Simulated assay, not measured.
Amino acid sequence: MTDTSLMKATGAGRFKQAMRSLAGSVNVVALQDPDGNLLGVTATAVCSLSAEPPSVIVCINQSSSLARGLQVGRLFSVSVLSEHQKEISEAFGGRKGVAGRNRFIYGEWHRSEDNVPILHGARACLECRVDDFIDYGTHRAAVGAVTDVHLEEMDDASLIFVNGQYFSVG
C-alpha cells in the first residue's frame, strides 16, 4: 500500500481523531497588524525549533486573520498559558463569541517596547519576528526568531489540551 492509498484508507477524519490524542501546551499567538488591529488566536501547534538561534514554529489555520498577519519581518508574541487562564484560551479560540480586538478584554495585556502584545500572568511570553513561513494544506507554519523572553515567577502549572479537554501539568 502506498502512502497516498494509506491516507485515503484512513481518511482526514481519522487523522484528526489521532491528532486529538497529542497533548499540547495551550498558547495565545498575538500581533498588531500594520493598520493597528490587534489579532490573536489560541494555538497548541507551537514548538521550539532551535536554541541557537532561539526560534519557534507556530502553525495557524490559514482561515484565521492572524495567519495572514504572519508575514516576514512582522513581530508577534507567543504567550504560554497557565492553568488559571482557561477563559483566555476559550476567548482566543473562538468559544466566547468574541473576535478581533474584543478578545483582548480577556486577560491583562500590555505592549512591549516593540509594541508587541504581552499577556501578564502567562507562564512565559516570547517576542518573535517572522523569519520565514510556509503555507501547507490548511495551515501556515511560521518560523519565529525569538527577540525577547518574559518569564513570570509563579507556582501555577501549565495549561494543556488533549482529546478536547483542558488539563494542568507541572
Rank of each mutant, 00 (worst) to 15 (best):
T147W: 08
D132I: 12
I118C: 09
L38T: 02
V80Y: 04
G40V: 01
T4W: 10
C59A: 13
S64H: 08
Y136M: 13
A91L: 07
L75K: 04
E87D: 15
E153V: 01
D156G: 07
A141I: 11
G94Q: 03
T2W: 09
S25E: 01
N61C: 08
G36T: 00
Q32C: 09
F76A: 02
A145P: 10
T147E: 07
D35M: 01
S65C: 04
R103P: 03
G24H: 03
R129S: 13
G164Q: 07
E52G: 05
K8E: 15
Q62I: 12
M154G: 08
V46C: 02
G69V: 00
R140T: 09
K86F: 04
N27G: 04
M19N: 01
T138D: 12
V58Y: 05
K86S: 15
N115F: 12
T138A: 09
S112K: 00
L39R: 01
Q62H: 08
C59T: 15
I60T: 10
S77N: 09
F15G: 04
V26L: 12
L119N: 09
N163I: 10
L66C: 10
G97Y: 06
Y106I: 02
G170Y: 14
H110Q: 14
G11T: 01
A91I: 08
Q71K: 03
S63G: 12
G170S: 10
R129T: 15
